[in-house]
């Protein structure tokens, strides 16, 4: 049995027009195609500037594609995020599409536990249950319990990143986009993240990620997807 197709990019292009710099145009992606299936973990590889992060952001609808389509399987129907309304995009993000970046966006005064629990609450789970799940995620990622009730603004880079991963993975989402979420983690913690990702994949999530660390890449990737910068090509 072949795994279900979850995400399909067709003829995707992205360029930036910089009005502040005399309308300079920056082409980052052109005619890009990609298919992602449930249960696989595709790792984008290629040099800096190849547009890997841009690609993830376009898929997440954080950037608007210039041309092409981003088809996402969302609750048993297909939706092109390039054409979806903001409300549809928000619904896809709430239930289908997860995105974990390198950086935790800290919300002033909100404790780590609640930052992690928030997506699960938005997903419709009751607050107490979401907090319990958040506590589980944090302890699995070795975030010391004394930090849970503190806002993560003052945490170290590695601690913030683990809070961020816990937040990104707390809702079991069919599609996960990961932009170097393990950049500041030590080997032990990277191993835990790899474990979590493997669990997500075997539970049916489709993962598309960027990992610079080769060890991490080897651990999680089921397939590599090479990318090259347009200007160099």
């Amino acid at each position: 049995m072949t795994a279900a197709l979850m995400l399909e990019l067709r003829d995707l292009s992205k360029s930036f027009e910089l009005h502040q710099q005399q309308g300079a145009r920056l082409n980052v992606l052109r005619g890009f195609d990609l298919r992602l299936h449930a249960g696989e973990c595709v790792v984008l590889s290629g040099p800096s500037g190849a547009g890997k992060s841009t690609l993830l952001r376009v898929i997440y609808a954080n950037y608007r594609p210039s041309l092409g389509a981003v088809h996402v399987r969302h609750q048993d129907r297909w939706l092109d995020l390039a054409k979806a309304t903001p409300h549809e995009v928000l619904d896809v993000r709430r239930h289908t599409l997860g995105y974990v970046s390198q950086f935790l966006r800290v919300i002033p005064r909100v404790p780590a536990l609640d930052i992690v629990a928030e997506p699960l609450v938005a997903h419709g789970v009751d607050v107490q249950q979401a907090r319990r799940r958040a506590a589980y995620m944090l302890s699995r990622l070795n975030v010391p319990e004394r930090l849970w009730q503190l806002p993560p603004g003052t945490f170290s880079g590695g601690e913030q990143q683990r809070v961020n991963i816990a937040r990104g993975l707390i809702v079991p989402r069919p599609i996960l986009l990961l932009d170097e979420p393990t950049a500041s983690l030590d080997a032990d913690n990277r191993a835990i993240v790899a474990e979590l990702l493997a669990e997500a994949c075997s539970a049916g999530s489709a993962v598309l990620g960027i990992f610079h660390d080769e060890d991490m890449r080897d651990r999680v990737a089921t397939r590599l997807f090479p990318m090259q910068a347009l200007e160099a090509a």
Partner: peptide, 12 residues
């Protein structure tokens, strides 16, 4: 549009 879209990829 979406706030993060507008702030991260402003068009106008």
């Amino acid at each position: 549009g979406l706030t993060d879209q507008i702030l991260d990829d402003p068009q106008h």
